[in-house]
């Protein structure tokens, strides 16, 4: 098991370097001058331009630039925003908010997704199953931002059950509605995946054997169907953490949540390249770590792969 963890960890290293390199390359090395973009295309004093170039190491060869970027990323020396704030401090304020939001969304997906998926899978073809299936299709088809507006309007404004926007401190209770919106599409995918997995495993030979042993229906479902069916669902949830970070850009915008997504979106619109690169680098780290956790969970659920 230790060996397995170590090997998986090794495999994630190239992913981390590759993804950060990709982002860095896209932002700094593609045609179009990032410095010119910084100033919004207006002409700039040569001295200022040179200073900016030095600040972002653009006077160095590409590989040196990338190396310095990585070093800065790891040491959290991320430079400054246009308004002169430390990027690391800004991220430090926004990160806990988004982390809370994502954890809530993920929990929401996992709990309700698995619950509805299991029941639908066990009652394939029945009314409950069809209803859940149609509902999940509709949720997938309606874009998150539309859902966000609709829920904000109905629950937040018309019914007044929740605050339509989130205040600066972003407490847990105000994040419920945004988390719901953020997790809804993935929730639909989790339901579909769980349902398919359950109904496939129900026909497995070992399930029939378990029944033949004299086990009760409940035990067969819980011990022999559920655990095996959760394996693909866990993989999906882990990979989805990255997707949630992407979705946070939209959701946080609608509900005005002061999180990473909002920060990133504003930075992109304002052309604050250092902030963009720093935030995306952090997201890649989160994604890579989440994948490691998924791998370990996977190995715990399925003993076969520990020895591969």
């Amino acid at each position: 098991m230790v060996m397995f963890t170590f090997r998986r960890f090794l495999q994630l290293i190239p992913v981390f370097f590759g993804a950060t390199l990709l982002v860095y390359f896209l932002v700094f090395a593609t045609p179009g001058d990032p410095i010119a973009a910084l100033s919004g295309g207006k002409p700039m004093a040569p001295a200022v331009e040179a200073a900016l170039r030095a600040q972002y190491n653009l006077d160095q060869p590409f590989w040196v630039q990338y190396g310095l970027y990585l070093k800065n990323l790891v040491t959290l020396n991320l430079g400054q925003t246009f308004s002169g704030q430390e990027v690391s401090a800004v991220i430090g304020r926004a990160y806990p908010v988004t982390a809370r939001l994502a954890v809530m969304a993920l929990a929401f997906e996992a709990i309700f997704g698995v619950f509805f998926g299991v029941i639908a899978g066990l009652r394939k073809g029945k009314l409950f199953d069809s209803t859940v299936l149609v509902a999940s299709l509709v949720v997938i088809a309606v874009p998150t931002f539309v859902l966000g507006f609709v829920l904000q309007l109905v629950i937040g404004v018309q019914l007044g059950w929740a605050k339509p926007t989130v205040s600066g401190t972003a407490p847990w209770n105000q994040l419920i509605l945004p988390a719901l919106v953020l997790g809804l599409v993935s929730l639909a995918y989790v339901i579909r995946l769980t349902r398919a997995s359950i109904s496939e495993n129900m026909n497995a030979d070992y399930v029939r054997t378990a029944t033949a042993k004299g086990l009760s229906r409940r035990r067969v479902v819980v011990v022999h169907i559920l655990r095996n069916s959760l394996i693909p669902v866990v993989t999906f949830l882990g990979a989805d953490l990255g997707g949630l970070m992407g979705g946070a850009i939209v959701t946080e915008g609608i509900f005005n949540v002061p999180g990473i997504g909002n920060l990133l979106y504003k930075a992109i619109l304002n052309g604050e390249t250092p902030t963009v690169v720093a935030v995306v680098g952090m997201l890649v780290i989160v994604f890579v770590l989440a994948n490691l956790v998924v791998d370990l969970l996977y190995a715990w659920l399925d003993p076969r792969i520990r020895y591969v």
């Binding site: 190239p14 992109i268 997201l283």
Partner: peptide, 13 residues
């Protein structure tokens, strides 16, 4: 590597 960046985020960049 490309999977590590979500579709929307990558496209935004």
């Amino acid at each position: 590597i490309f999977f590590a960046l979500p579709l929307i985020l990558g496209a935004i960049i």
